[in-house]
Design a protein around this nucleic acid. Structure first.
Length: 302
DNA sequence: GCGTGTCAAGTGAAA
DNA sequence: TTTCACTTGACACGC
């Protein structure tokens, strides 16, 4: 079991998501931003290793305009050694990595250019993991997309889109249950049609489900992962008290987290904390996991 | 320097 | 009809 947090480290004085406006695009600006972002990513990963946080979601913004037509620079070749070095660090320290293409990636959109843009974005993010020479357990997690008033057809379009993806992208793709459109059951249907694993989000499942108890839901999701995919990845969060339904909590509530862990039973998972204060909560969660024996109490070898 | 409107991109619920 | 939220704020202009 590994635990981690997404994209941003609030302790370190750097960002791995620096960008700039499309209007001010230049090759020089791009190189500057990517150089900065990768240097910061390396720092974040070192922080994570030092703190025992072995699961990390990389920012989608490592390469600004990574899938935009304006970006004709061959950043893949230019930064190949840097990506490879970071990948080496990831593998040496046994880190688990994911990325989460944003809401604009909609494989089942009825609009052709939106699907094409989505393919380009997936290709960009997959290229980063490929350049790092990470194996297929490094995943790209996306949502199923829109419903458009006809979910069965929307699911069919999603499956058709997955079929035409290049092998390297399809091998990394996982689908996450969301909090208002595609439940775990819907994702299971997508899995049956596409064979891609389901990334299980406990909080979304609490918002939208078909009555499966948490332990059962976890078991169903875990069954969709093959050995080469690695162990089940989950997103963990809980409701922000007094806020709109679906709003993520600002800081981990350890009693709720402890209760959630009881549903795992013997299941091994890697947990991504989708919690506002990032590594602060992750460090606390890790301490609890060590106390409860889910994670060895010893520090990782540096 | 600091405050703040806006930023490449989609969808659907809430206001 | 418009705004807001989404895995994540940061850029860049105007004062």
């Amino acid at each position: 079991m590994k635990i981690g947090y997404p994209c941003i480290n609030e302790t370190l004085p750097c960002s791995s998501a620096t960008t700039f406006r499309l209007a001010s695009y230049s090759e020089e600006r791009l190189i500057q931003a990517v150089t900065n972002n990768l240097a910061c990513l390396q720092q974040i990963l070192e922080f994570n290793v030092q703190h025992g946080l072995l699961f990390f979601r990389m920012s989608s913004d490592l390469v600004p305009f990574g899938s935009h037509p304006v970006n004709t620079f061959n950043w893949q070749d230019y930064f190949k050694p840097t990506f490879a070095a970071i990948g080496q660090y990831i593998k040496q320290n046994n880190l688990r990595i994911s990325m989460h293409p944003d809401q604009f990636v909609v494989l089942n959109s009825p609009t052709e250019h939106i699907v094409q843009n989505s393919f380009a974005e997936l290709a960009y993010q997959c290229a980063i993991m490929d350049l790092m020479e990470l194996n297929k357990s490094a995943k790209l997690q996306i949502h199923a997309g829109g419903v458009y008033g006809d979910k069965p057809n929307a699911i069919m379009r999603f499956a058709d889109a997955v079929q035409v993806l290049p092998d390297n992208i399809r091998a990394r793709l996982v689908v996450e249950n969301d909090d208002r459109s595609y439940s775990l059951q819907d994702c299971l249907e997508i899995h049956e049609r596409t064979n891609i694993p389901i990334l299980f989000d406990n909080f979304h499942h609490e918002c939208l489900n078909n009555g499966e108890p948490m332990a059962e839901a976890l078991r169903l999701a875990a069954q969709t992962w093959q050995p080469e995919d690695g162990i089940l990845m989950i997103d963990y969060s809980s409701q922000s008290p007094g806020d709109r339904k679906g709003k993520h909590i600002a800081h981990i509530q350890l009693d709720l987290f402890r209760e959630f862990l009881t549903h795992l039973q013997d299941l091994d998972v890697d947990i991504m904390l989708e919690i506002k204060d990032k590594e602060a909560s992750a460090v606390q969660a890790l301490a609890l996991l060590r106390e409860l024996g889910y994670v060895p109490a010893t520090e990782p070898v540096l």
